[in-house]
Nucleic acid binder design. Structure first.
Lengths: 197, 197
DNA sequence: GTCTATATAGTGATAGAC
DNA sequence: GTCTATCACTATATAGAC
């Protein structure tokens, strides 16, 4: 026996995660400003007022999603500080493409909804993004130092590589013409050539 | 003598362009869904009702901005079908970076507000964007045919180059560390290497 | 913890005066 | 061509019943 019929909606103890999942899906599909708390509540299967047991307000819902995404990105970024720069860069390209391909909604929100954060929340997310960029730039700089990369301006190349790799999410679909392995191979080929490795 | 004082707002005959300019600025800053017709009217210096002399609705305002931008992009894309592929690609990179750097608000809207278009309007804008991508892919294919480019999959490289170049807009500011000439030089260097030219 | 009901404010769009 | 006034609706967030 599982549960008796209930007269007043769900009393599941995992409503919190379901609220975040619903917000993630709807924000990615329609945009933060265009998605109402009522729409999120309907997706979860509760009334709008019930959401406020899980988030103080709509802004916190957005910030929590973006913050969790960026933190996970940084936590899972391969370290490999003992490998040579070329292997580190290959590892970074591989990781970036796969991590982002696995989380299209999170990535979309992280790039599109920055302007809907409050000033303070925006600064926190930007600091995390900056950390990620700095990690790639460190790899490039060490490769330039040891002479295996031929790069004029590591900052520009950092931003160019990240923009190129993140662009995969605008067109890649699992089950499409190309497998993720093939995508990684071809982007690594371009990155490798671009840095002169 | 210019004008007598007026008791009821502006009667300028260029209100139409000013409405589009205000919408462009505010959509780029706050996002289509978050910007009200009243806010646009305030930016222009009229009351909300007056806007409807210049646009049938808010959606048309967004579509017109995006459509005009994409049409101008296609109109100004260098032809150069008589030049060799390497020169054509260089010309494309130079054009793309400068055209987009000149129009940060238009570019931002064209990428961020696609999901706020109606289905029909979205299809029209996508067709224009596709035309632009096809132009670059044609250059890459002709270079592969004549053996001056070493590219495995022209479609992927097309999308990677456009993502990389458009990414310039997220950080470039006139008067910053780098001039636009230097940016063009460095991105052309990366593109050139990536296609093996 | 979820419900219903509500406070307060804002939305896109239209009508009719001038 | 712009104004004022308004319609019908939706928004976020809160209060109190259960």
């Amino acid at each position: 026996m599982k549960h008796m019929a209930r007269t007043q909606g769900s009393h599941s103890d995992i409503t919190g995660p379901r609220v975040r999942a619903a917000a993630l899906k709807l924000f990615a599909r329609g945009g933060y400003a265009a998605v109402s708390m009522r729409a999120i509540a309907a997706e979860v299967g509760v009334q709008a007022g019930a959401l406020y047991n899980y988030t103080p307000d709509k802004q916190s819902l957005l910030f929590d999603l973006m913050s969790a995404h960026m933190t996970e990105l940084l936590d899972q970024t391969p370290d490999g500080s003992d490998a040579d720069p070329r292997a580190q860069l290959h590892s970074f390209v591989d990781f970036h493409i796969r991590f982002h391909a696995d989380r299209p909604d999170e990535v979309f929100i992280a790039y599109m909804e920055l302007r809907n954060l409050t000033e303070e929340n925006f600064a926190r997310i930007e600091a995390l993004r900056r950390q990620y960029e700095d990690h790639l730039e460190d790899i490039l700089r060490s490769g330039v130092s040891s002479g295996v990369f031929n790069v004029r301006d590591t900052k520009i190349v950092t931003l160019a590589i990240i923009a190129m790799l993140t662009g995969v999410n605008t067109w890649f679909r699992a089950g499409g013409r190309l497998s993720l392995d093939e995508v990684v191979t071809q982007y690594w080929d371009m990155v490798r050539k671009a840095v002169g490795a």
